[in-house]
Simulated scan of single mutants.
Amino acid sequence: MAFPNALISRNVNLTGDVSKVVLGDGVAIYGPSVIVLYDGGGLTGSRLEIGEGTFVGEFANLRTAGAPITIGSHCLLGQNVTIVGSNHGTRAGAPIVDQPWVGTGVEIGDDVWIASNTIVVAGARIGSGAVIAANSVVRGEVPENAIMAGSPARQVGERRP
């Protein structure tokens, strides 16, 4: 794997189809971290794109799980952030492990700060300029420049000039 304009620590475990990874100039991914790019469960859209100047802290857990994860430019992801592109189905009457995966991936805009110990679940869309407080669980839509906190994350403020 060669990303000449990005820094990836030696102890980042990147598994799966690395041809589906696009890293912008100046991306830094620190380890130990895990990045998994696998299709499965009926989904075939695994892809990871990270925009220029984005920092990913230690103990990150990024799993495409058959769906795309897009992270914008100049973002900060604190330590122990988890982002997952899909989930297992939960229909009654069939074992969870046998159910198809569901999810449309995750989209994160530019200039977003996701603080430590945050989980971003499948289907989340985080607008540019948003700030996500530590220990939050993000699902659904996050407006641009929103400050979010909690589990599930709720808007608690807004970035202003």
Rank of each mutant, 00 (worst) to 15 (best):
residue 14 L to R: 08
residue 158 E to S: 09
residue 40 G to N: 12
residue 122 A to V: 06
residue 132 I to T: 02
residue 68 P to N: 03
residue 155 Q to G: 02
residue 72 G to R: 05
residue 53 G to T: 01
residue 114 I to K: 03
residue 99 Q to M: 04
residue 51 G to A: 06
residue 47 R to P: 01
residue 2 A to H: 13
residue 119 I to K: 09
residue 129 G to C: 04
residue 11 N to R: 11
residue 146 A to W: 01
residue 7 L to F: 15
residue 48 L to V: 09
residue 17 D to T: 12
residue 48 L to D: 11
residue 56 V to S: 08
residue 4 P to K: 02
residue 46 S to T: 08
residue 83 I to E: 05
residue 156 V to N: 00
residue 101 W to H: 10
residue 144 E to D: 11
residue 28 A to Q: 12
residue 52 E to S: 15
residue 127 G to L: 03
residue 121 V to L: 15
residue 122 A to S: 14
residue 86 S to A: 15
residue 123 G to L: 08
residue 67 A to L: 04
residue 78 G to K: 10
residue 51 G to E: 01
residue 120 V to Q: 06
residue 102 V to K: 12
residue 98 D to P: 06
residue 161 P to E: 13
residue 111 D to L: 09
residue 140 G to F: 01
residue 113 W to H: 02
residue 137 V to Q: 02
residue 54 T to V: 05
residue 159 R to Q: 06
residue 133 A to Y: 05
residue 37 L to E: 07
residue 151 S to R: 10
residue 139 R to L: 07
residue 61 N to T: 12
residue 101 W to T: 09
residue 60 A to V: 06
residue 32 P to F: 13
residue 31 G to R: 06
residue 107 E to D: 10
residue 36 V to M: 13
residue 85 G to S: 09
residue 23 L to D: 00
residue 69 I to S: 08
residue 154 R to T: 08
residue 42 G to K: 07
residue 19 S to E: 14
residue 155 Q to W: 02
residue 137 V to Y: 02
residue 147 I to L: 01
residue 112 V to F: 05
residue 34 V to T: 14
residue 150 G to T: 02
residue 57 G to L: 13
residue 106 V to S: 07
residue 12 V to A: 00
residue 27 V to S: 00
residue 161 P to N: 11
residue 142 V to G: 00
residue 92 A to I: 02
residue 31 G to P: 05
residue 16 G to D: 08
residue 82 T to N: 13
residue 114 I to T: 05
residue 34 V to A: 11
residue 143 P to Q: 04
residue 14 L to Y: 06
residue 29 I to E: 00
residue 29 I to A: 00
residue 14 L to K: 04
residue 136 S to R: 03
residue 56 V to A: 07
residue 5 N to R: 10
residue 75 C to R: 03
residue 55 F to A: 10
residue 43 L to W: 04
residue 26 G to N: 01
residue 77 L to H: 08
residue 74 H to E: 13
residue 67 A to E: 05
residue 22 V to I: 15
residue 120 V to M: 06
residue 54 T to M: 02
residue 115 A to P: 06
residue 116 S to Q: 15
residue 11 N to P: 07
residue 120 V to E: 04
residue 98 D to K: 14
residue 19 S to L: 11
residue 55 F to M: 12
residue 45 G to I: 06
residue 26 G to A: 02
residue 146 A to E: 04
residue 109 G to W: 03
residue 78 G to I: 11
residue 126 I to G: 03
residue 94 A to E: 14
residue 50 I to K: 04
residue 141 E to R: 12
residue 142 V to S: 00
residue 126 I to Q: 03
residue 120 V to S: 03
residue 86 S to H: 08
residue 155 Q to A: 10
residue 100 P to W: 09
residue 114 I to H: 02
residue 50 I to S: 03
residue 123 G to S: 07
